[in-house]
Design a protein around this nucleic acid. Structure first.
Lengths: 109, 109
DNA sequence: ATTTAATATTGCAATATTACGATAAAGACT
DNA sequence: AGTCTTTATCGTAATATTGCAATATTAAAT
């Protein structure tokens, strides 16, 4: 025991949970917000921006990448990280859809 | 070390991370989706719906409640859990806002 | 007052996450 | 080749999460 029982849930539920889990840390929210704010997106800049050591930032970037939220491309000897719009789009439509469903409901509590 | 350095991030970043973290588990996604689907929302129903033991479900409900995503009101000897629309609304507008910002940007990668 | 039903809490084992120093890897620049 | 810069990986300690059996709590029903 101790590990998440992924196999008992639907693919869609797991997919959304993967995205929200990846965003479930303030450092990773900060990274995403930084990538949206700036025009360049060099990894080193992100390290400078965050109050965390370089290996920690690298690890957070890896998790965002694994979840599909960002993508990185090699740019000389540094790496350019960017938001993957598809992932954000999924989240956006997911919560928009929930909002619509909630509006139609009379919440009992 | 090992604990999240919450104090180094903004309140807003922490607030969003709290919400996304709470949703970062397929069981909790399933709970939220179930609460939206049904009209009644008694805890026992949720336990029957999920492939997890009652204490585990209770714990997930607690986390959703702590994050402000659901609220529970006592209804006889059972408890009525409902979505807190404000939390969903926060997430919805957060991702909608990001989407808009991304549209205006030419992503470099 | 007992019993029953519905949730919560406790305690614990298994696993995962967070953070960072040290080190490695890979490309750029002399 | 050697050095510098940039990013990734390894190893490890501290902490958090996940899951459940056992037990406690609370309110209804008898």
């Amino acid at each position: 025991m101790g590990a998440t029982k992924t196999e008992h849930f639907t693919d869609k539920q797991n997919a959304i949970a993967t995205l929200t889990k990846a965003l479930g840390h303030p450092a990773r929210i900060a990274i995403v917000e930084y990538l949206i704010k700036v025009d360049t997106c060099i990894c080193g800049d992100i390290v400078n921006e965050l109050p965390l050591a370089q290996p920690t930032v690298s690890q957070h970037l890896k998790e965002l990448k694994n979840a599909g939220l960002i993508k990185g491309s090699i740019e000389g000897n540094s790496i350019c990280y960017c938001i993957d719009e598809k992932a954000i789009s999924k989240l956006q439509s997911y919560f928009a859809n929930i909002s619509i469903k909630l509006e139609k409901k009379n919440n009992c509590c």
